[in-house]
C-alpha cells in the first residue's frame, strides 16, 4: 500500500529530526569547547586550553568539591531510606494516598519546594549551608530511589524469604544474605540516578545554600557564569558535566538491565 510506506517514510524522518533537535545543541557545545579562539561561537582551530583554565579556577574547583560532598551524602541517605520505603510499600496493600505522597517530590515545581524549604529552615532559625542542601536533596532523591527499587521488587519472589526464615535465619540475616543481594542492582541503579539528579540540581540548592560563597555548588557556579555571558570555559565545563551525567545514566541503565536478563 503506497500510503502506508509514505506515512512510514514521514514517521521515520520525523524521528530523525527529533534526534537531531535533541542532540545538535549538545554536540555543538562539546565541539566548541575545543575551540581555540576566545570567541566561543566561531571555529578557529583545535585546543584544550579551556580545560586547562578550568583546573586553575579556584572557585570552580571549590564548587565542584561542594557538589560532590552534597551528592555523595544525599545519595547515601536517600538510597537507604528509599530502599526501606520500597521494601515496606511493596508488601503493603495499594494505598493511593501513599503513592501520591511518593510521587509529589517528582512533580512539584522546584521553585515551590525551594521556597517552602527556605521558609521552613528560616522559621526554625536553622543555619543554612551544605548540610541544608543535603537535607533538601534527599527529599526528591528518596522518591526516585524508591521508584526504581519498587520496579525491581515487582518480580521479587517472596518465598525465598520464607525459606530463609524457615531455615532459622533471623530478619537481619535474611535481609543481608537474601533480600539485599537480590535487589542490590536496583538499589545501585537508583543511587546512580539520585547522584546524577543531586549533581545537576540548581534551584533548591540555590535557595537552601544560604548567603556566602562557601556553599556554592557547581550548578550555582554555572548559573552565575552563564548570566555573565557565553565563554569557552563554560563550554568546557558543560562538556565535562554532561559526560559525567551520561556515564552515570548509562551505567544505571546497564546495571538495571543486567538483572532482568
Amino acid at each position: 500500500m503506497p500510503s502506508f510506506s509514505l506515512s512510514n517514510l514521514y514517521l521515520n524522518s520525523h524521528l530523525k529530526v527529533v534526534y537531531f533537535f535533541l542532540y545538535m545543541p549538545i554536540i555543538v557545545l562539546m565541539v566548541l569547547s575545543f575551540n581555540k579562539a576566545g570567541l566561543p561561537t566561531v571555529w578557529s582551530g583545535f585546543s584544550v586550553e579551556w580545560y586547562g583554565k578550568l583546573l586553575d579556577n579556584e572557585s570552580i574547583l571549590n564548587a565542584a568539591w561542594n557538589t560532590l560532598i552534597v551528592a555523595v551524602i544525599s545519595t547515601i541517605l536517600s538510597s537507604i531510606l528509599g530502599t526501606l520505603l520500597a521494601l515496606g510499600i511493596e508488601r503493603m496493600k495499594v494505598n493511593s494516598g501513599l503513592d501520591a505522597l511518593l510521587f509529589a517530590p517528582m512533580i512539584i515545581p522546584d521553585i515551590v519546594l525551594a521556597i517552602a524549604l527556605l521558609s521552613f529552615f528560616t522559621m526554625l532559625d536553622f543555619t543554612l549551608g551544605l548540610h541544608s542542601i543535603v537535607l533538601s536533596h534527599v527529599v526528591f532523591n528518596i522518591a526516585f530511589v524508591c521508584a526504581v527499587v519498587r520496579t525491581r521488587l515487582k518480580n521479587f519472589d517472596y518465598s525465598v524469604i520464607e525459606a530463609s526464615e524457615d531455615l532459622g535465619a533471623g530478619s537481619f540475616t535474611t535481609f543481608r544474605r537474601v533480600t539485599l543481594p537480590i535487589i542490590f542492582p536496583g538499589v545501585l541503579a537508583g543511587s546512580l540516578l539520585a547522584f546524577t539528579l543531586s549533581v545537576d540540581e540548581f534551584i533548591i540548592a540555590f535557595f537552601t545554600a544560604g548567603a556566602g560563597s562557601s556553599s556554592t555548588t557547581l550548578p550555582m557556579q554555572i548559573y552565575s557564569m552563564i548570566r555573565f555571558g557565553v565563554t569557552p570555559e563554560i563550554n568546557a565545563m558543560a562538556t565535562i558535566v554532561m559526560l559525567v551525567s551520561f556515564t552515570m545514566v548509562f551505567l544505571s541503565q546497564r546495571i538495571n538491565k543486567g538483572i532482568t536478563q
Partner: peptide
C-alpha cells in the same frame, strides 16, 4: 512494614509536607 517505611515517610513529612503546609 511500618518500621520500614517510617524513616522515609518521616523525612518526606518533615522536609516536604510541613514546609508546604507552612507556605
Amino acid at each position: 512494614n511500618m518500621l520500614l517505611i517510617a524513616p522515609g515517610l518521616g523525612w518526606l513529612a518533615l522536609f516536604m509536607v510541613i514546609p508546604c503546609v507552612l507556605i
